[in-house]
């Protein structure tokens, strides 16, 4: 009787002990809690970079994906021969300098989806404060580039922590918020020519606006603005992810129609 009890006890304790020992013999990783950061207006670049690095490697969770180069673009060394993030950031999106591009990538990553990757990154402003976001930007800039984040950036964002509310200064300047009804003004305000060429200005990342009305219908243009992912023009498939899908919300119906008609008339 007692022999049986002891045997049962031994089996139970032995099994539990084996599980505990095995669990204790593998790498021990603890989750990291992000530190609350608070910077004064005259914070130095070094302080920002150091805080950003700690976040990148620890509590921010960035290194889980961005360190491997398989789930997400490699940020620390090289990505497909384009260099470190600090080098390539300014070239990624025309019209956004390095700082603006990095900040926007953090708060609205899917709008700046890098081709070849799936959209898995979360809006980091849901989990990080604006201090922390700017520290990360500073750290990324330091990877091969020059740190231009200053205390002023943080203060201009200061106190705005909740999701979505943190619209970076750069985007506002590039201006989706124009109320004009003049098509050219609307297009300028929305940085269309950042990717499309019109009358010799703009960048040839997307299809040219010259003669666009002769190539496609007004309906097609409207659809392409509202739902750019629906289909790319021939030869531009690779860049389709760069076209923001948010114009449908940013433009008023009148503005949208003005732009569509304006483009459709350019034969």
């Amino acid at each position: 009787m007692w022999q049986t009890n002891l045997k049962v006890l031994a089996v139970v304790l032995g099994t539990v002990a084996v599980f505990t020992i095995v669990s204790s013999s593998i790498p021990q990783l603890q989750s990291v809690v992000p530190e609350d950061l608070s910077f004064s207006g005259d914070v130095t670049a070094e302080e920002l970079v150091a805080a950003g690095q700690a976040l990148f490697e620890g509590a921010g969770g960035c290194a889980d994906c961005h360190g491997l180069g398989t789930r997400a673009p490699n940020l620390l060394t090289d990505e497909a021969g384009t260099g470190q993030i600090g080098v390539r950031c300014a070239r990624r999106v025309t019209g956004q300098d390095c700082k603006a591009y990095l900040f926007n990538s953090l708060v609205d990553p899917n709008a700046l989806q890098v081709e070849g990757y799936i959209p898995i990154m979360a809006d980091m402003s849901r989990t990080l404060s604006s201090e922390q976001l700017w520290a990360l930007v500073a750290f990324l800039q330091s990877q091969g580039g020059e740190v231009t984040v200053t205390g002023a950036d943080i203060e201009s964002e200061g106190g705005v922590e909740s999701a979505g509310a943190a619209q970076p200064a750069a985007v506002t300047a590039a201006g989706p918020t124009s109320t004009s009804s003049d098509p050219v003004e609307i297009m300028t305000a929305n940085a269309c020519l950042g990717c499309h060429v019109m009358d010799g200005t703009g960048a040839p990342i997307g299809p040219s606006f010259d003669g666009i009305g002769g190539r496609v219908s007004a309906d097609y243009i409207r659809q392409s603005i509202l739902d750019p992912r629906a289909g790319a023009s021939e030869g531009y498939e690779a860049f389709i992810q760069l076209m923001p899908a948010t114009f449908g919300e940013q433009l008023s119906a009148a503005q949208l129609e003005a732009v569509v008609q304006f483009l459709a008339d350019r034969r």
């Binding site: 599980f19 095995v22 593998i26 969770g61 789930r71 898995i120 990154m121 979360a122 989990t127």
Partner: peptide
């Protein structure tokens, strides 16, 4: 719901847990 949460679970600091789960 949240790719970030999924990533923490499968690839982040919990990734070794799945080796233990496999063992069990």
């Amino acid at each position: 719901y949240s790719p970030g949460m999924g990533q923490t679970l499968m690839g982040g600091f919990m990734s070794w847990l799945w080796i233990i789960q496999a063992f069990l």
